[in-house]
């Protein structure tokens, strides 16, 4: 196992960490954070595996993809946070409706 795979595994871990948090947490801000963590996991997989070129320069295409992805994730986060704020203003709580009965 080399560095690339190690980081890729960390990426997988982050992805599932985020997924776990996304499932168990009701608060929307945490859900948004969880999605971001998941996104980071995926980006990590992408970039880490791009380093399998050996000693040469890593594959640039995934890097470009991740930069794109980061901007997308940021855009989505911005929208999500705004929505969350507005929703909280409207309902008084930062949770999805069907989760209100959730013990969390």
């Amino acid at each position: 196992m080399n560095t690339a795979f190690f980081y890729a595994l960390v990426g997988v871990g982050l992805f599932f960490l985020g997924l776990y948090a996304l499932i168990v947490h009701a608060h929307l801000l945490r859900k948004i954070l969880a999605l971001n963590v998941m996104g980071c996991g995926v980006f990590l997989v992408l970039v880490a595996l791009a380093r399998r070129t050996g000693e040469a320069q890593p594959d640039a295409v995934p890097h470009a993809m991740v930069i794109t992805g980061i901007v997308v994730a940021f855009s989505a986060t911005a929208l999500a946070l705004t929505l969350m704020v507005k929703l909280t203003a409207a309902t008084g709580r930062a949770e999805l409706q069907s989760d209100e009965r959730d013990p969390h």
Partner: peptide, 12 residues
């Protein structure tokens, strides 16, 4: 309220 909540869930 409905639209925001629906949109939020949709976004997630």
């Amino acid at each position: 309220r409905d639209a925001l909540s629906g949109a939020m869930r949709y976004l997630l």
